[in-house]
Design a protein around this nucleic acid. Structure first.
Length: 511
RNA sequence: GGUCGAUUCGUCUAGCGGUUAGGACACUGCCCUUUCACGGCAGUAACACGGGUUCAAGUCCCGUAUCGAUCACCA
């Protein structure tokens, strides 16, 4: 049987980087096994629905390079798709039918308790020091439901349109075992599971029901999700059993969590803000508040870098290879090698990956970024010049959008000169070198390219009896105002002869 | 608090009874580069603790500690 996995986010906002990793692991496993990856939208909570979130999630997955084989985001030309619809809000009849079936089979029941009544019950139990304040095999007998009310009253309440839910009739004493791919055998006593609401009073299912029904109907073979779902996994096993689908129940793999870079707890938006890094793949503008949250893409991260970084958080192929393309990850992926423990999300290594992938990029891919930023700053910058700048500076940056800032000494003539270099290097020889080189340039009509400039400078200084090594840093100072920077000859080539001469004159006058 | 789970350098991790406990990021130094960066080389740095089992334990077992997840008509 072919492997089928799903990523099932809730459209309550932008996709968190932890969600991206969950999607990534699903994708790697699916591809590795030659199976399919589905995208299902779990929008059963009408209160938390955020417009635009679904489109954001689809775009984010596309950006990182996760391809969806089936489900939301795939174009079915108006048709629901082979197992669609893939939006749970459009599948309510399906869940209602299954919930009703469970009621008819005595595995679930109607309940009419109001929020206040539930509150009161919990408070009462807590006051009595009960082991757990839950709606279960014992407490259900004191509540307003089909187990305590006469059948005729249940019927009339429903007929009258009274708000009601359907709850799972969880057995009092039963061991529920589940063989998790990551964690091995997990055993939970049914007393730890309460009579979970399956169908809410608005007619929509809760996560638990919708999830099991859809995974079954959509032929899901492996459920790969975050560790936060582990405690409810036994409930899901119970549901498969009650629904009569236990023989085709998917295998579970609960992924370790992404933790805060420091301190304790799982990674949150706040940690990202504090640490000055993004937590969402793409920039996100909250439709309600207009608040903009930064994205990895907009911050200059390459998708390959994010993927490479994320893949190695909680998983490792057991080799010493660190750099992986998506295809290499797929080839190396082994679900049995997923860790049990959480991983701290430290951005430093992500930056290192980014630096690596930036260098891999052809100059022609990066040049437009320089051109655009230069244009925005009011400079005429041809694609050719931008490409030259990229080639010169690519190895010095971590993010593509740092190129223009790194190139500031090319675009801007110095307005001040590093005092430390001035006092150490700007001596008589240096001034004389600037003068003779300026003069030589005046009479020079050859090609103004790095190699030629190098020769001209060497010859000129030699004739003047100046040791080049003694004045090179001063020359750099005169041209850029700084003692550090990329190759001088190439820099001069890009700046151009006229500007070089102008800057030499300016330095001679100003320092 | 109940339940479940985790614990190797600061961080990500390799390890699956016998290793000088390996790699990467970060950090430091050296080399290269008449600068800086890149690159190369080197270095600092870890098995949470206590008991067992065993000739032998980072590896197996049991405790303790610490950390985490979860206990809604949210997913």
């Amino acid at each position: 049987m072919s492997v089928r996995v799903r990523f099932a986010p809730s459209p309550t906002g932008p996709l968190h980087v932890g969600g991206v990793r969950t999607a990534l692991f699903n994708y790697l496993f699916a591809r590795k096994m030659g199976g399919q990856m589905l995208l299902r939208v779990e929008d059963t909570d009408q209160n938390r629905f955020v417009p635009g979130a679904e489109a954001y999630i689809i775009e984010a997955l596309r950006w990182v390079g996760i391809e969806i084989d089936e489900g939301a985001g795939v174009d079915y030309a108006g048709e629901p798709g082979p197992n669609g619809p893939y939006r749970q809000s459009e599948r309510r009849e399906i869940y209602q039918a299954e919930a009703t079936r469970l009621v008819e089979e005595g595995k679930a029941y109607y309940a009419f308790d109001t929020a206040d009544e539930l509150d009161a019950m919990r408070q009462r139990l807590e006051a009595a020091n009960a082991p757990a304040a839950q709606y279960n095999a014992i407490t259900r007998l004191q509540m307003k439901n089909a187990l305590t009310l006469p059948p005729a009253e249940v019927q009339s309440r429903i007929a009258n349109g009274e708000a009601h839910v359907i709850r799972l009739k969880t057995p009092l004493k039963e061991e529920i075992r589940l063989n998790d791919i990551v964690r091995g055998w997990v055993t939970v006593h049914s007393s730890a599971i309460d009579d979970k609401v399956l169908l809410k009073s608005d007619g929509l299912p809760t996560y638990h029901l919708a999830n099991i029904v859809d995974d079954h109907l959509m032929g899901i073979t492996h459920v790969i999700r975050g560790e936060e779902w582990l405690p409810s996994a036994p409930l899901h096993v119970l549901l498969y059993r009650y629904l009569g689908w236990e023989d085709t129940m998917p295998r579970f793999a609960h992924l370790p969590l992404l933790l805060k870079p420091e301190g304790s707890g799982k990674l949150s938006k706040r940690d990202a803000d504090l640490g000055g890094f993004p937590i969402f793949p793409l920039q996100w503008t909250d439709p309600a508040t207009g608040v903009v949250a930064r994205g990895f893409r907009e911050d200059g991260y390459r998708p390959e870098a994010l993927v490479n970084f994320l893949a190695l958080l909680g998983w490792n192929p057991g080799t010493e290879q660190e750099i992986f393309s998506m295809d290499e990850l797929i080839a190396a992926f082994d679900i049995d090698k997923i860790h049990k423990g959480g991983a701290r999300f430290e951005i430093e290594k992500a930056k290192w990956f980014n630096q690596h992938y930036i260098r891999q990029l052809p100059d022609s891919d990066l040049a437009p970024v320089v051109m655009q930023q230069a244009t925005e700053a009011g400079f005429a910058c041809s694609l050719e010049k931008a490409t030259q700048i990229t080639a010169l500076l690519k190895g010095r940056i971590t993010f593509a959008n740092e190129l223009f800032a790194e190139a500031r000494t090319i675009f801007y003539a110095p307005t001040e000169y590093d005092p430390a270099i001035v006092s150490a290097k700007w001596n008589d020889d240096a001034k004389r070198a600037a003068t003779v080189f300026g003069d030589a340039l005046t009479g020079y009509n050859g090609l103004f390219a790095a190699d030629e400039i190098k020769h001209l400078l060497a010859d000129t200084l030699q004739q003047a009896g100046i040791k080049q090594g003694k004045v090179m840093q001063a020359m750099r100072l005169a041209l850029t105002g700084s003692g550090i920077g990329p190759d001088m000859m190439l820099t001069m080539e890009i700046i151009g002869k006229d500007e070089v001469m102008a800057r030499l004159e300016k330095a001679l006058a100003d320092i």
